[in-house]
């Protein structure tokens, strides 16, 4: 006769309604609250939380400062992570799935100007959020479709070879720390 182990049964919905919350402070001192499932999407933040030994009991009393991300980007990131926190884990991200279509919710979230998008990518890279990085890079990549080299130069803010050369010359002409 088998004996059922005495393990408390926790309903998934119950967990969703009582999440562990963490506090994050952006570089411009905005405070954000994020659930445990959502913050796990950021490898950097989750490593930090683990290393600091934050628990359900002390998490809210120990806000995590993130010096490299401003409030605007952090707001987008928290929204994204909360939206995708229960997504099934992808086996492995690959850029070669070209048939992928960005979900409408994410497309709207990432409908921001280039400068903001570039800054968001830098923040996402720092926080190591694979899925958001993948989505942002797809949005940037989609801008290249059917464009000429000159159009891409403007869209992507790429200098001409002559401008690059001029920059290098001015850098080599300027005095160094001892000059």
């Amino acid at each position: 006769m088998s004996v059922e182990p005495e393990v408390p049964i926790v309903q998934v919905e119950e967990v969703r309604e009582n999440p562990v919350l963490y506090k994050i402070i952006s570089s411009d001192n905005h405070v954000f609250t994020i659930s445990e499932h959502a913050v796990k999407l950021s490898k950097t933040l989750w490593d930090l939380i683990t290393n600091l030994g934050l628990t359900a009991e002390n998490a809210l009393d120990n806000p995590i400062p993130v010096e490299n991300v401003n409030g605007k980007n952090m707001e987008t990131i928290v929204q994204f992570c909360e939206r995708h926190k229960y997504d099934e884990e992808e086996p492995e991200y690959t850029n070669y799935i070209r048939e992928f279509v960005l979900p409408e919710w994410d497309r709207q979230l990432l409908s921001i100007d280039n400068e903001e998008l570039f800054q968001l990518i830098l923040a996402t890279n720092y926080l190591d959020i694979q899925k958001l990085m993948d989505y942002c890079c797809r949005v940037i990549g989609d801008m290249a479709k059917d464009k000429t080299p000159e159009e891409l130069r403007i869209i992507y803010g790429i200098p001409t070879d002559a401008e690059d050369d001029a920059l290098e010359r001015s850098a080599s002409d300027s005095p160094g720390p001892s000059g």
Binding site: M133, C136, R138, G141, A144, K147, Y156
Partner: peptide, 22 residues
């Protein structure tokens, strides 16, 4: 911002998502 200022990881992800023509 410039694409060339991107760190290698996102830059390579962007390039990896482009078609051969782009």
């Amino acid at each position: 911002p410039s694409l060339l200022d991107m760190p290698d990881i996102p830059l390579d992800m962007i390039l990896g998502g482009l078609g051969f023509k782009e």
